[in-house]
Amino acid sequence: MSIQHFRVALIPFFAAFCLPVFAHPETLVKVKDAEDQLGARVGYIELDLNSGKILESFRPEERFPMMSTFKVLLCGAVLSRVDAGQEQLGRRIHYSQNDLVEYSPVTEKHLTDGMTVRELCSAAITMSDNTAANLLLTTIGGPKELTAFLHNMGDHVTRLDRWEPELNEAIPNDERDTTMPAAMATTLRKLLTGELLTLASRQQLIDWMEADKVAGPLLRSALPAGWFIADKSGAGERGSRGIIAALGPDGKPSRIVVIYTTGSQATMDERNRQIAEIGASLIKHW
């Protein structure tokens, strides 16, 4: 067993022997301040990774656009098919120029040779490549099948209805392509620590998230040296922004954090800054 596999296998073990965790309302004060600064709703939840206990939450059962955070769930569904012998990570998928959609920095470079399922998941999570996500959605049967996968996990809230990039439209009061912070946090925890996926697939999923290259201005910008984070960000229309993450000190994750916002007129930089400040408060009061 590799060191990384050992780390993920012992996530519940280490967490069980940690000192009790206590909620700190100071972080919620910052979440509410972010709402004021952005002029928009902000949803927040913080779960203990081992027990699933909610440590703090704000608007945990209000719907927010998922945006690209759905790509972690998508690759979880792909990995479940791999575990069941219905898919192979090494299978190569070929596609054409007509398949390319807006923001496809990886797939646009491989029109000639195609990409493997493993490479597509890596591109979808680490670079948020939209064509990679659409190609992977095709392998599982489309958005409705991802929703069905989530329902089978016990998540009857999260739903995907459309493809990239239309799913980022974020129309107010439109339930399409949305989740709730509580539902997303619980589902992410199941994917990373539950028995739904094999140990190898859980490790692969967290490795992809740990290698995320496009979430630097968010929670990662607030992390002290030595902290662990595996995350996936999302951005959408109407001032929408979000991030889902597993993080913790001492090089291992111990909490799940989900943050979503929508309806702001603020710039992307300002949305990023507010999420980073929430992260800084979380870490300060850990």
Rank of each mutant, 00 (worst) to 15 (best):
residue 83 D to V: 04
residue 262 T to C: 04
residue 286 W to L: 05
residue 163 W to Q: 12
residue 131 T to F: 15
residue 194 G to M: 11
residue 95 Y to D: 05
residue 176 R to V: 12
residue 78 V to M: 11
residue 54 I to H: 11
residue 184 M to D: 12
residue 105 P to D: 09
residue 203 Q to P: 07
residue 181 P to R: 01
residue 285 H to E: 06
residue 120 L to S: 01
residue 129 D to F: 00
residue 112 T to L: 15
residue 71 K to W: 01
residue 204 Q to L: 03
residue 174 D to E: 05
residue 279 G to C: 05
residue 93 I to T: 01
residue 206 I to C: 13
residue 154 G to P: 08
residue 207 D to H: 11
residue 229 I to C: 09
residue 132 A to K: 01
residue 266 A to P: 07
residue 226 G to T: 03
residue 101 V to I: 09
residue 163 W to P: 11
residue 124 A to E: 14
residue 221 S to H: 11
residue 256 I to D: 01
residue 63 R to N: 11
residue 222 A to Y: 11
residue 237 E to H: 09
residue 33 D to E: 03
residue 133 A to W: 00
residue 151 H to E: 04
residue 65 P to S: 06
residue 187 T to D: 13
residue 274 Q to G: 12
residue 29 V to I: 03
residue 262 T to F: 06
residue 229 I to T: 06
residue 109 K to T: 15
residue 199 L to P: 09
residue 241 R to A: 06
residue 102 E to H: 15
residue 208 W to F: 15
residue 114 G to W: 00
residue 44 Y to E: 06
residue 62 E to G: 00
residue 235 A to V: 02
residue 195 E to M: 00
residue 143 P to A: 08
residue 103 Y to M: 13
residue 206 I to R: 12
residue 61 E to L: 04
residue 139 T to S: 05
residue 119 E to Y: 15
residue 67 M to F: 12
residue 111 L to H: 03
residue 58 F to C: 00
residue 219 L to R: 07
residue 156 H to Y: 05
residue 217 P to N: 12
residue 111 L to Q: 01
residue 259 I to T: 09
residue 206 I to F: 12
residue 47 L to K: 07
residue 254 S to D: 05
residue 276 A to P: 09
residue 80 S to D: 02
residue 275 I to Q: 14
residue 163 W to E: 12
residue 149 F to H: 12
residue 55 L to P: 11
residue 249 P to M: 13
residue 270 E to Y: 02
residue 86 Q to V: 12
residue 30 K to I: 08
residue 190 K to P: 15
residue 282 L to W: 04
residue 116 T to G: 01
residue 142 G to D: 08
residue 249 P to S: 09
residue 217 P to V: 12
residue 157 V to D: 08
residue 132 A to G: 08
residue 221 S to Y: 04
residue 124 A to R: 09
residue 123 A to G: 15
residue 184 M to S: 08
residue 195 E to Q: 12
residue 53 K to T: 14
residue 79 L to T: 15
residue 33 D to I: 06
residue 101 V to L: 06
residue 242 G to Y: 03
residue 165 P to G: 06
residue 28 L to Y: 08
residue 164 E to I: 01
residue 147 T to W: 05
residue 78 V to Q: 03
residue 282 L to G: 05
residue 235 A to C: 05
residue 151 H to C: 07
residue 265 Q to D: 03
residue 80 S to R: 10
residue 120 L to W: 01
residue 110 H to K: 15
residue 76 G to M: 14
residue 28 L to W: 15
residue 71 K to F: 00
residue 60 P to N: 11
residue 282 L to D: 07
residue 248 G to L: 06
residue 33 D to P: 08
residue 283 I to Y: 15
residue 77 A to N: 00
residue 284 K to N: 09
residue 185 A to R: 05
residue 112 T to K: 07
residue 126 T to W: 01
residue 224 P to G: 06
residue 39 G to Q: 15
residue 131 T to M: 10
residue 30 K to Y: 14
residue 66 M to D: 00
residue 136 L to Q: 15
residue 86 Q to S: 13
residue 147 T to R: 01
residue 235 A to P: 01
residue 197 L to M: 12
residue 174 D to I: 03
residue 41 R to W: 07
residue 175 E to F: 10
residue 171 I to R: 05
residue 211 A to G: 04
residue 186 T to H: 08
residue 274 Q to P: 11
residue 242 G to F: 02
residue 148 A to M: 00
residue 222 A to P: 09
residue 126 T to C: 03
residue 53 K to R: 11
residue 63 R to E: 11
residue 86 Q to R: 08
residue 286 W to S: 03
residue 185 A to Y: 08
residue 33 D to H: 09
residue 278 I to T: 13
residue 281 S to T: 07
residue 175 E to P: 12
residue 49 L to T: 06
residue 54 I to F: 09
residue 194 G to V: 08
residue 273 R to L: 07
residue 160 L to H: 11
residue 58 F to A: 00
residue 102 E to C: 03
residue 144 K to R: 08
residue 31 V to T: 06
residue 60 P to V: 09
residue 260 Y to L: 07
residue 274 Q to K: 12
residue 86 Q to A: 06
residue 248 G to C: 04
residue 170 A to V: 10
residue 203 Q to S: 12
residue 150 L to Q: 08
residue 129 D to G: 00
residue 140 I to H: 11
residue 263 G to Y: 15
residue 184 M to P: 12
residue 188 L to S: 11
residue 212 D to F: 06
residue 107 T to R: 13
residue 257 V to Q: 03
residue 171 I to A: 02
residue 72 V to D: 03
residue 35 E to T: 10
residue 139 T to V: 08
residue 258 V to T: 10
residue 69 T to D: 08
residue 255 R to Y: 13
residue 114 G to L: 04
residue 166 E to V: 08
residue 204 Q to K: 01
residue 174 D to L: 03
residue 100 L to H: 12
residue 202 R to W: 07
residue 55 L to A: 12
residue 48 D to Q: 11
residue 265 Q to K: 06
residue 274 Q to A: 07
residue 113 D to W: 00
residue 138 T to M: 13
residue 138 T to G: 06
residue 274 Q to N: 11
residue 96 S to K: 15
residue 179 T to G: 11
residue 175 E to Q: 13
residue 119 E to W: 13
residue 190 K to S: 15
residue 155 D to R: 07
residue 83 D to L: 09
residue 191 L to Q: 07
residue 207 D to M: 13
residue 34 A to I: 11
residue 93 I to M: 12
residue 158 T to F: 07
residue 254 S to M: 08
residue 72 V to N: 12
residue 94 H to N: 05
residue 220 R to L: 05
residue 123 A to D: 15
residue 219 L to V: 08
residue 131 T to A: 03
residue 231 D to F: 04
residue 193 T to A: 08
residue 286 W to T: 02
residue 247 L to Y: 14
residue 216 G to I: 05
residue 172 P to R: 07
residue 185 A to T: 06
residue 87 E to H: 04
residue 50 N to I: 07
residue 80 S to Q: 05
